[in-house]
């Protein structure tokens, strides 16, 4: 599955252009140091956190896409950084558990 397919399947709202990349798994965290230590390249990161540092951490570990839950939207500079890093950022009114459930149902492990 790719980031584009994930966005379509979960009806996510794109906050950046969609950079279509293979999805290798999912990681859920609101801590940047935890993302650096535990997320894997190609993961979809599910988070409430919209700080620039989350984008910088996601870029460091080569996250494929970020899904901001409960309708969060980042500041314009964070979106611009994500776009520069070619990381798709999506927003959804769902909470993190609901997003994770839907990704699991879509076959992502």
């Amino acid at each position: 599955m790719t980031t584009k397919e994930v966005a379509e399947r979960l009806e996510l709202k794109g906050l950046t252009p969609v950079f279509d990349k293979p999805v290798t798994g999912v990681y859920i965290s609101d801590m940047v140091s935890d993302v650096i230590a535990n997320a894997k390249a190609g993961n979809v990161l599910i988070t409430l956190q919209v700080h620039n540092n989350v984008i910088a951490a996601a870029n460091l570990v080569d996250i494929a896409a970020i899904v901001l839950t409960r309708g969060r939207t980042p500041a314009p500079e964070a979106s611009a950084l994500a776009e520069k890093a070619e990381i798709s950022v999506f927003s959804t009114p769902m909470d993190s558990w609901q997003v994770a459930t839907k990704l699991y149902e879509a076959g992502i492990r």
Partner: peptide
């Protein structure tokens, strides 16, 4: 602190939808 990728003050720039 906000510059460093440890979890200092990370809600400072949060923007609610």
């Amino acid at each position: 602190h906000g510059q460093i990728m440890a979890d200092f003050e990370l809600t400072a720039m949060e923007v609610e939808a």
